[in-house]
Design a protein around this nucleic acid. Sequence first.
DNA 1: ATCTTAAAGCAACAGTTGTCGCATTAGTGG
DNA 2: CCACTAATGCGACAACTGTTGCTTTAAGAT
Lengths: 219, 219
Amino acid sequence: MTPPPEGTPGRRPGGRSARVRAQVLEAVRAELGEHGYEGLTMEAVAARAGVHRATVYRRWQDVGGLLADVLDAAGEDDWGPPDTGSLLGDLTALNEEIQESLVVQPSVPQALMAAAFRSARAAEAQQRLWEDRYARCEAVVERAVARGELPPDTDARELLIAATAPLYHQLVLLRTPVAPRAAVRAATAAALAAGAGAFGRSERGPAGRPPAGGRSVPG
Amino acid sequence: MTPPPEGTPGRRPGGRSARVRAQVLEAVRAELGEHGYEGLTMEAVAARAGVHRATVYRRWQDVGGLLADVLDAAGEDDWGPPDTGSLLGDLTALNEEIQESLVVQPSVPQALMAAAFRSARAAEAQQRLWEDRYARCEAVVERAVARGELPPDTDARELLIAATAPLYHQLVLLRTPVAPRAAVRAATAAALAAGAGAFGRSERGPAGRPPAGGRSVPG
DNA sequence: ATCTTAAAGCAACAGTTGTCGCATTAGTGG
DNA sequence: CCACTAATGCGACAACTGTTGCTTTAAGAT
């Protein structure tokens, strides 16, 4: 979050302010990568950024503010979901990406989730990021529907959550090591349920129609 | 966690120590209920328990230690999963319990999960609690298998995680309001996938019936 | 170039947090 | 009832955290 709204007249988005912001955000990421969330202090960030403590406090208030800014910056990339040609392939690849980002130690995403518990501002930023990511992933479902792999009234969000939630649950909440094939397993289960109409938008459960096309599982 | 192992000779588990512990743990729960996790300070807990600050620091070290003790105490109850007579009913009822405990504000379970991010000791205690709860829930799957609702080689833990993860994901991580029928939806999807053999312990995916339609995925 | 003024630097300060040595209390065993 | 000592109470203290007023720097405009 850039405290001074960038467009306001009288502001100075150029030169130093921008430089300081970049230095500080970079320092935050570096500290997160080295010491994780617990090790993240305003003091260390300021020192690493080569900036005075008071400056960091004034612009970002607290650790939550710093992370909120990092989160917002993270949402500005051009990430898109994998496109492998099949629903199961897409979901599996997506899960593998998720798994990879969560198992590295220390994991920046993990740290950001932790931060969301401590700071309301970080929580809001985190929510925006989730929303953005899941929205982009809806393309996966739309393609599957277009291919005839899924019923047209499939609730994309619900399917995506069902597919990805187990990995987050185990790696973030349960903190359990996951089996190597966990990504495929979760993707398979979700795809299977979706094919059977479990995520139809109509209030009725699994539709009466037979699961359309698509092999349900790889070899 | 009770720092002095209860059985050690020379210790004094009776009278005052036990009383102080009870007062402090009760104070922690009360503070959690009133101010949530962020509002939980050693100072406030000590004051509420009518105990000196130094005592709390000495016995529990930090906030994480306090919550670890609360978590361990929580695992000593006689909770068991619902038994409704069907797999879908059990999973749905379970999800509704979960949902209920997570939506009340402030939610003690949420606070405990938040704590697990901050303190290694709390994280370990949390892990023990999860393990205990999921282990107890395996009864649900065993009953379903006995009824013939599920293939005998169903991996109970995987099924349970698939069924419950979406709710945790939305309520804890995404912090999104969930549809009233979310509990049933997630339970249905998991039960459906499980019935099709998606959680079989053999390495092959869904077993039993051939993939419906048999059409190959374009790609 | 020069002026104006956001924004950063600086240092002193108050509030909070965690630690420590010592005095006091109260279980426990004789 | 008494002696022993683990555990708590107490208060002083250092370290850390965040705030504030003032000074200095440098971006942007004339």
